[in-house]
Design a protein around this nucleic acid. Sequence first.
RNA 1: GCGCCAGUAGCUCAGCUGGAUAGAGCAACGGCCUUCUAAGCCGUCGGUCAGAGGUUCGAAUCUUCUCUGGCGCACCA
Length: 596
Amino acid sequence: MIKNIALSREIILNESFPVDYNVRVEYPPGPNKGHYSTPVAMECAKIFKRSPNDIANEIVEKIKEVPEISEYFEKIEIANPGFINIFISTKVHIEMIQKFNQDSKSIYNLVKTKDHEKKIIFEFVSANPTGPLNIVSARAAAVGDAICRIIKICGYNIYREYYVNDYGNQVKLLGLSLVARYLQKKGHEASLPEEGYQGEYIKDVLEEILKKISLNSETDVKLLDKTVKTLDIVKNDDSQWKEKLGESFGTEAVEILRASHEKDLNAFGVYFDNFFSEKNLHDGGEVDKALKVLKKAQKVYEQDDATLFKSTDYGDEKDRVIVRSDGRPTYLLADIAYHKSKIDRGFTHIYDIWGPDHHGYIARLKGAMKAMGFPESDKEKKKEAFEVMIVQQVNMIEDGKPVVMSKRLGKFHTMTDLLEKIPADVVRYFFLMRSQSSHLDFDLDLAMNHSSKNPVYYIQYAHARICSIFREAKKDIDADIKISNLTSEQIKSSFREELLLMLWRFPEIVEQISINFEVQILSEYLYNMTSVFTRFYHEKENRILPLLETSPNEAEFLLKIIQITRQVIKEGLELLGISAPVKMEGLLKQQDEETI
RNA sequence: GCGCCAGUAGCUCAGCUGGAUAGAGCAACGGCCUUCUAAGCCGUCGGUCAGAGGUUCGAAUCUUCUCUGGCGCACCA
């Protein structure tokens, strides 16, 4: 609908007001101000040096002259200081109902354009494989997954990737931490390395490695086995031996942890097309290649035996070391190589979601992308072709106090902890309720104690109610209900038009999110739409079962409305990765027990 | 010191690329089950949008400064 209005306005505008202008269409604050409105006259006032009201008048007159456009508008009003308020006609409702009647894809107004040919890669979560997934990773997973689902439903190709930092110092440290735990287990004196990983999970990982050794006889495992068996005769201060064992342990542990991340994410309903290994990047010489590209672009220089990238050329506050004085590449260079691989693999749009501790990193990586010649921006959309989003931190609040999270000290709330306490549907909704770029206080007590008042249940409840009505009416929920002779009176009364208008917004909102990635708009919308539905539901005139006897025509119409409502809730929740239950009995029982 | 995110109702937060009377939920108070699920609905209470200037027809939104809070500023990843 927005598109139709904007389009019609553009036709009109181009005639009398020849200006390249993007017409905005908004939802007005109240029903007396129209169903849709546009401030375009006010925005153009300055350009043409005329009063907004004048311009608005002229536009409205022009619209009235074009019958194929004006038949969609019941009336158009001008409100001070120059808003054009549009009231849509019954014809629009009838056409929209038919549209929703077809397969669910057709509601998104999918016209394949050249824009749909772009290849998008979306990288998110990418947690270090040195410990269990934490809450921020869970948030990133929820947000990234929802954005991917929305982009996909809008007809784009999207590839989901997870970058695994299975290389470097942290892996070594992880391995040495395991060696220390192993020695302790065998009754030797051993202390964790400085900055080592202290979490309890290290012991579980160790057990799993040892189990693997006893079950498996693959070559590298064999090597490990041999090393372990000779342990007792080796002095435990033999650092060379420790290094070697640490390396094997580290490699094994990283794979175990990575696999557990994947498992946790799958349980959360999040899937990836690929897990991209940093180690392969190093082993395959890709890191050196990236360095060569930067050198060729003349964006590197040497200083004190180290190699630096001139990120200041791209607005960074200082140049960054990419090769250390001892010749080892830094994480940044590897990351540049990783992003180079994204370009090499033919992706035209590269999006990342990073954790809050990486925001200082954006400038330098964006600089590197430019240095490698990746297009700066996509002029048609407002997003750049390479965009990094930051998911801000999550503070877990328990008993009114923030819970301290630290991976190194082993005191943290993992994603698994969270999902044990709170159902995945609720966790997802909480993470998707607010914009990812702001801090989030996650009140555990509130999430658990007030779960029955939780907005996600409210939405699911509406879905269950609709399913229940169809059960009671003995109708198939997917039945093709034909509507005939719809009158304007039928639509206008008892919150019906309010609900319909709300429903027509759904594809508009989904499309909007596919461009700006602000997922919380969808959760907000679903809640508000559900609220309008519940009001509609409670109106006596909208009670369907009695009407089936007295006025089947009316009943069919109402069934059609709730059928579409159900379709929107179901698809909307699906885009957020949340289930749409047919019944809510389980929770009802729970609540009854509480009241007894 | 520099940078990022923020400061909106008692609490947690929405408020879309400036637009009309600043919105939800929770909490508090008062109504509504002979009626398709009361996990609900209706109503009441509650705000100097941290503060001060600037831009303009119009600012919670953009901009500058100040104050407050959180986080980040490695030849770690």
